[in-house]
Design a protein around this nucleic acid. Structure first.
Length: 672
RNA sequence: AGCGGGGUGGGGUAGCCAGGUAAUCCCGGCGGGCUCAUAACCCGCAGAUCCGUGGUUCAAAUCCACGCCCCGCUACCA
């Protein structure tokens, strides 16, 4: 049987795992587990995305080599994934030798096939950092509204999208130095050559509509050739040049290199997956499903297939994009505090991974936005998992244990499942199978909850607690039916709740390792082999209060930071009367560490100003200097001396550096 | 600004593509029942002008047009 390859978008090894990541990984893992349940031969692949400017910048900030930074997050992701039960067959990294090798081969193939050309382009460069600046590392003035803007977007002003080079007064966002524009030879991928191919491909590609529609529109609209090299040390070298290939070129190639590694370890054939495929029409299809976030649709539906086609690989057959995550009703945002960190907020606080798995899969359809709220988590766990599913499983197992010592079969000579029990189990199995074909994980999980609900109903209407007193055989028959529902529930919900169901399965001596979905309808002499415990632990109100408090505090702090970045209007600025002043007199204030009393001519008026600059300046050197003064500041007394204004200076590690006009200007000149 | 997705009882959804009695299911609310079960389970009830306006039609949540609102994306952040 052919191998089905399932991948997840590669996590960027530059920060910790948060709930947004799991929006993609958990459904993918659930899908993989269901596929295996249905007898498919699946390879589940992922790994760290380790290159790119942000990692280099961040590593510098932390005083380490990019590799060290990557090591940290690579291990972090691995441990978090394992803690939430996302079990990849292979979890690689793009800074490994095998990946560099694969990427180099891939790029060479593109060159060989004539899809790469070079061109000189102008790019922003920071002479101090000695680095070319991606747009998001450029800060300047928005040409439309005058607000401070990023290189690609006026994020604090008018919100307009800016074309590269459009921004005024570009500066390096990291060090503030004025950016230069430098000419540089770069390599481009002839994406435009794939327009017809992509239109045809996207027409036949399977996946969620949110991904496909979006990509189709994009291709119809306009395609540009794609610049695929960067001036950076860290990354995969572009053959024969002192450039690296752009991370978005090498990252998806990770899907291939990781498959190859996985196959080397497991003894399968990576070429059968990525090269051979199955031809249908003009397209050579590979049995590959990419699970991704909505934000990287165009990479996976446009750039990636074009790259694969251009390098003679087979093409993925499905792209499944998950919706976005909201936190407590607000758009997910790390900077605004609307984030749930998996390690610190969730796992370390003792929340069970299965709860989160259920929440993510069951809250809404895979394509829609998912709102995470702690209170909803509590509601869903306590009222759904526990009250419905957990309760049914437990009441049946415990009833069996208590009244039959775990074995109902001694009472029964002959046994058949009730028609309605068979029908309901069969229906659940079919519905789940159908739902998975459409990546409707909510429908799948609702379905086993429905079966559990049926179980509760059945139990209730049969009243085994009454039967046990009157008719033990009939009671055993009812319980046997219930035990089969329990078995079906374990199997059908196992992909969503692997930790819990594995434990529950032990109560009936069942091994889930190689279990197949068809077994839900097979008759078994199910016995309860050890004293059952309730499958789930409730989430207490207090736990939610506590974690909500942490979150609110985080949001509050973020808002404070945000306030500091607040945009002011020109009118606000013009309320400040800032003028050039000439220092007439200066003397140190006795007993103070760094205060100097100055007399400053601000044009027709001599002001007495106290400034905390004695660390850097002596009174003598100040006399005669031109300085910048805020003159309409409300007077205040410092160490008993009145100050009628403020000298403007830069604070460099607590030391003042005065602002001085660059040319000789008359005192009193207004600063604007 | 452009493009994409979406707006159905308090929350989440089904239905829309193939119009047909005013609408599915889950959670929550209210009332009752049961006691095997983690105050769990079972039954019943309330609650929606299906974003607005106009159009097509015998008939619209469903089709068309315009408008409003929310979300996402826009290639050199990954």
């Amino acid at each position: 049987m052919g191998v089905k390859l399932i991948t997840c978008g590669l996590p960027y090894a530059n920060g910790k795992a948060h709930i947004g990541h799991l929006r993609t990984y958990i459904p993918a893992d659930v899908y993989v587990r269901y596929l295996r349940l249905m007898g498919e031969n699946v390879l589940f692949i992922c790994g760290s995305d380790c290159h790119g400017t942000p990692i280099v910048v961040n590593a510098e900030k932390e005083g380490m080599h990019p590799k060290e930074l990557v090591n940290i997050y690579h291990e972090h992701f691995k441990s978090v994934f394992s803690a939430v039960g996302v079990e990849f067959d292979y979890f690689g990294r793009t800074d490994s030798d095998y990946h560099h090798e694969m990427t180099t081969q891939f790029v060479k193939k593109l060159v060989e096939n004539g899809y790469i050309y070079s061109k000189e382009i102008e790019l922003a460069y920071c002479p101090k950092c000695k680095r070319f600046l991606p747009d998001r590392y450029v800060e300047g003035i928005c040409p439309y509204c005058g607000a401070v803007a990023r290189g690609d977007e006026c994020d604090q002003g008018c919100g307009r999208y800016l074309e590269p080079g459009e921004i005024k007064d570009p500066r390096c966002k990291i060090c503030g130095t004025k950016a230069e524009f430098r000419k540089q030879k770069h390599y481009f991928f002839r994406l435009t050559a794939f327009r017809e191919f992509l239109l045809d491909y996207l027409d036949k590609l399977k996946g969620t509509e949110n991904a496909l529609n979006y990509a189709k529109e994009w291709v119809k609209k306009e395609l540009k050739d794609w610049c695929i090299t960067r001036n950076l040390e860290w990354g995969v070298k572009f053959p024969g040049e002192n450039l690296v290939v752009y991370v978005w070129v090498d990252a998806p190639i990770g899907y291939i290199s990781y498959t190859k590694e996985a196959c080397r370890l497991k003894g399968c054939d990576w070429k059968a997956i990525w090269i051979d495929g199955i031809s249908n029409g003009k397209i050579r299809w590979a049995d590959i499903t990419h699970f991704i976030g909505l934000d990287i649709v165009y990479h996976h539906c446009i750039f990636w297939p074009a790259m694969l086609k251009g390098a003679d690989f087979a093409l993925p057959s499905a792209i499944v994009a998950s919706g976005m995550v909201k936190v407590e009703g607000k758009t997910f945002s790390k900077s605004r505090g609307y984030v749930v960190w998996l390690e610190d907020d969730y796992l370390r606080r003792g929340f069970h991974p299965d709860y989160l798995r259920y929440y993510i899969v069951n809250y809404t359809s895979h394509q829609k936005d998912l709102n995470f709220s702690w209170r909803t988590l509590m509601d869903k766990v306590n009222n759904e998992l526990i009250a419905n599913l957990g309760n049914f499983i437990y009441r049946v197992l415990y009833f069996t244990w208590k009244n039959f010592d775990g074995n109902v079969w001694e009472e029964l000579d002959e046994f058949n499942l009730d028609r309605e029990v068979i029908d309901n189990i069969a229906k659940a199995k079919d519905e789940i199978t159908k739902a998975l074909k459409k990546w409707e994980f909510k429908v799948a999980s609702d379905t086993f909850m429905e079966l559990s609900s049926f179980g509760n109903n059945y139990f209730q209407s049969m009243e085994p607690w009454e039967l046990i007193k009157k008719d033990k055989v009939e009671c055993a028959r009812v319980v046997a039916n219930c035990l089969h529902i329990v078995k079906a529930l374990i199997v059908l919900s196992y992909p969503v709740l692997p930790f819990t169901m594995k434990r529950v399965a032990e109560y009936i001596g069942m091994n889930l390792d190689c279990i197949k979905i068809d077994s839900v309808l097979e008759l078994d002499n199910i016995k309860v082999v050890k004293k059952p415990k309730p499958p789930f632990k409730k989430i207490e109100e207090e736990e939610v209060d506590r974690v909500e408090k942490v979150m609110l505090e985080r949001i509050r702090r973020a808002e404070e930071v945000e306030k500091k970045k607040e945009v002011v209007k020109i009118e606000d600025f013009s309320r400040l009367d800032i003028r050039i002043g000439k220092v007439l007199k200066a003397e140190k204030i006795e007993k103070s560490k760094k205060l100097i009393k100055l007399e400053v001519d601000t044009g027709g008026e001599v002001k007495q100003i106290v400034a905390g600059i004695a660390d850097t300046y002596s009174p003598d050197e100040l006399v005669g200097k031109l300085v910048v003064v805020l003159v309409n500041l409300k007077p205040a007394k410092l160490m008993g001396v009145e100050s009628q204004g403020m000298l403007l200076a830069v604070d460099v590690g607590g030391k003042a550096v005065l602002l001085i006009p660059e040319r000789d200007v008359p005192p009193g000149s207004r600063v604007k």
